[in-house]
Write a protein that binds this DNA or RNA. Structure first.
Lengths: 178, 178
DNA sequence: CGCGTCGTTGAACAGGATCAACACGCGTGG
DNA sequence: CCACGCGTGTTGATCCTGTTCAACGACGCG
């Protein structure tokens, strides 16, 4: 939250993600984490994780890698918000979301759940609610996506990527998943 | 660089920083790194660093921590660009820069070198050059900073922080440095 | 049935972008 | 030594993308 009371959403975590890994080696938590759907959450104490990492360098490297990929996503969001205008920004978001969801096995035929309200989308993309609404309509009108009742279907993957100027490289997924 | 040819600067590194740590555990580099001043750069092979981290869990944790702090800065930039308007955005940038510079011992009396052109600033803050110019003038007119010939002086630290809605917590510096 | 959340729409507004000049300092080459 | 070009900073005018405000409709749930 900004001092002015504005919210910025920094990431959406999906099944299998470890949201709090970002603060593993930091004393204070500089963000807050919340759920937007019903969730099953597993907890691991930081101390336990740290002790594990001390003994198992391989595990440490894997988790470290995970945090680096999140950093790459943060960077991509910076350029998305800083340098792309609303339509491309939204398209880019949809591309990222569906690629990540697919990597978790949540996508069937370019179609997946998107349990995110337009208000949350606006706080993630640095736009107003009203404009998010209009941009989503534009994406629908262009025949790129179908989005209703929390369900996203990508109708034209190639063009959606073009509009969103999207390249999945920064997600560092195994090639089979892309 | 965006597909449209627009540039987004994601971070400025100063003396003592390790710019490429972000790709230590990633195969492909998804960003590019350049210098904007004359620099002395030391190189360490990723493999050497990885081997070191395998044997020295302490070192690994310290470097990992470093990357996490960068991730925290990326997050702060997202909210800065996404949710603050130009004046506050610039003020926030100046606050972050001078705090980081001070932690490296580069600040004397709220004053340090800022070898960054307005064009680079604009690409970092997601603004146009012209608007950066005007916003900097505004900060000067408000008596918050003095910025000329690559030299930044903060004239009113308290108010600059207020205008920039700045809290140094996310930089995770030792308390003595703040 | 009533209420809250979410999505949608229209109109007016504003923050910042874009375009086009120009000023200034500096290094380089003629 | 001077002219020139380049990078950088600055200014004014106009345009446009996205915000804000305000209202309404649809839906689900207690």
């Amino acid at each position: 939250m900004t001092g002015e009371g504005k919210r910025q959403i920094l990431a959406f975590h999906i099944t299998g993600d470890m949201p709090d890994l970002q603060s593993l080696h930091l004393q204070t938590l500089d963000i807050s984490i919340g759920t937007i759907t019903a969730c099953k959450v597993g907890f691991i104490q930081h101390e336990d994780l740290q002790r594990l990492c001390e003994r198992q360098a391989r595990v440490a490297a894997a988790l470290w890698r995970e945090t680096l990929i999140y950093a790459a996503m943060f960077r991509e969001w910076i350029t998305n918000i800083g340098r792309r205008q609303a339509l491309g920004r939204a398209a880019h978001f949809m591309c990222e979301y569906i690629v990540r969801a697919r990597a978790m096995g949540l996508v069937e035929d370019y179609s997946c759940e998107l349990p995110i309200t337009q208000e949350e989308l606006s706080d993630a993309m640095g736009l107003s609610i009203v404009h998010v609404n209009r941009v989503l309509q534009e994406l629908r009108k262009l025949g790129l996506i179908n989005l209703e009742s929390r369900h996203l279907t990508v109708l034209d993957w190639t063009r959606l990527q073009e509009v969103g100027d999207f390249d999945a490289g920064y997600l560092h997924l195994p090639k089979t998943a892309t």
